[in-house]
Amino acid sequence: MTLSPDTRAKLARCGAATLANALLKRGFRNTFVLGMSPVAPGQPPLIGPAWTLRFIPAREDLDSMELYARNDSLHRRAIEECDPGAVLVLATGGDARASSMGDMMALRLKTRGVAGAITDGGFRDAPGIRDTGLPCFQIRESGPATPIWLHPVEFNAPVGLGGVAVYPGDIIVGNDEGVVVIPRHLADEVAEECAGVADYETFVAREIRRGRSLFGLFPATPESRADYDQWVARGRPQQE
């Protein structure tokens, strides 16, 4: 489930929409998790392999604050056992009636070196989560305690997240554009391709500001690629 520093750095430069387009070229149509919002606007990109916890609806004889406090609680164990560098995926089936995590759990993840957390439900204690610096994404905020509506049942099994399949080890990338799920075996090549796209789009933006038309520039043509290569060779100047 490791992700190389080089691939991680390249993914950090890539927008979620660009990554989704690269996956579409490879036949993967459903990889963008719609409706996700960062807990903290402007937070660092969230990048890492998925480590999943699946919830089902709670039941009164199994779920209470007393039972929730036990050391064998799967929810609490997930916070302690999620791999450093991974993204904790809290899959609720889209249920935001109760919170998936609060600020103390987020702080523990941060101190353990977990990359971040994502849920298709909601988190509580959002100001506290923001203070931890842990990158997190959710559908919407949710204050009620977890055991009211949610029961944790399984670690590291395939889950649905906002209608997107997530398999353990898939690479999660979340940034200001949204969240995308990359099959692990494609992460390196998609990162390489999309980092190149990001570089080319920096060139495109420069050319547009100088008055150049989109025609023959975006999408790229052999001629515009040659112009781009020359720009790179000159050291990528922004002003000429």
Score class of each variant (00 low, 15 high):
3 L>D: 03
6 D>C: 01
6 D>V: 14
7 T>F: 00
9 A>R: 14
12 A>I: 05
12 A>V: 04
12 A>H: 10
12 A>F: 09
13 R>N: 09
15 G>P: 10
15 G>C: 14
18 T>P: 01
18 T>C: 11
18 T>I: 11
19 L>T: 01
21 N>R: 14
22 A>K: 00
22 A>W: 06
23 L>R: 08
31 T>Y: 05
35 G>A: 08
40 A>V: 10
42 G>P: 04
47 I>N: 06
47 I>M: 10
50 A>L: 09
51 W>K: 00
55 F>E: 01
56 I>R: 12
57 P>A: 09
63 D>Q: 11
65 M>L: 15
66 E>S: 06
67 L>S: 06
68 Y>G: 05
68 Y>P: 01
68 Y>T: 01
68 Y>E: 13
69 A>G: 02
71 N>F: 11
74 L>N: 00
75 H>I: 03
76 R>N: 03
77 R>M: 14
77 R>I: 04
79 I>V: 15
80 E>H: 09
82 C>L: 00
83 D>S: 14
84 P>A: 00
89 V>P: 06
89 V>L: 03
89 V>W: 04
90 L>C: 02
93 G>I: 04
95 D>P: 02
98 A>Q: 07
99 S>A: 15
101 M>A: 08
102 G>P: 06
102 G>F: 06
104 M>D: 11
105 M>R: 05
107 L>S: 13
107 L>C: 06
112 R>F: 12
112 R>I: 13
114 V>D: 13
115 A>E: 13
117 A>W: 15
119 T>S: 15
119 T>D: 12
120 D>F: 02
121 G>Y: 08
123 F>E: 03
126 A>P: 08
126 A>F: 07
128 G>T: 04
129 I>P: 09
131 D>P: 02
134 L>V: 04
134 L>D: 09
137 F>E: 07
138 Q>T: 04
138 Q>Y: 00
142 S>W: 06
142 S>L: 06
142 S>K: 02
143 G>E: 14
148 I>Y: 08
150 L>T: 08
153 V>F: 03
154 E>R: 14
154 E>Q: 15
155 F>M: 06
155 F>Q: 02
156 N>I: 03
157 A>S: 09
159 V>P: 15
164 V>K: 10
168 P>D: 09
170 D>I: 06
171 I>V: 15
171 I>A: 02
171 I>C: 10
174 G>M: 10
175 N>Y: 05
179 V>L: 14
182 I>D: 04
185 H>N: 13
186 L>M: 13
187 A>P: 13
187 A>I: 10
189 E>P: 09
189 E>T: 14
190 V>P: 02
190 V>N: 03
191 A>Q: 10
192 E>C: 07
193 E>F: 12
193 E>A: 12
195 A>C: 15
197 V>C: 05
203 F>V: 08
208 I>K: 15
209 R>N: 12
210 R>W: 08
213 S>G: 05
213 S>L: 11
217 L>D: 02
218 F>M: 03
218 F>C: 08
219 P>S: 13
220 A>N: 08
224 S>E: 00
228 Y>W: 15
229 D>P: 00
231 W>E: 11
231 W>M: 13
231 W>V: 10
232 V>R: 14
232 V>N: 02
234 R>Q: 15
236 R>P: 12
239 Q>L: 11
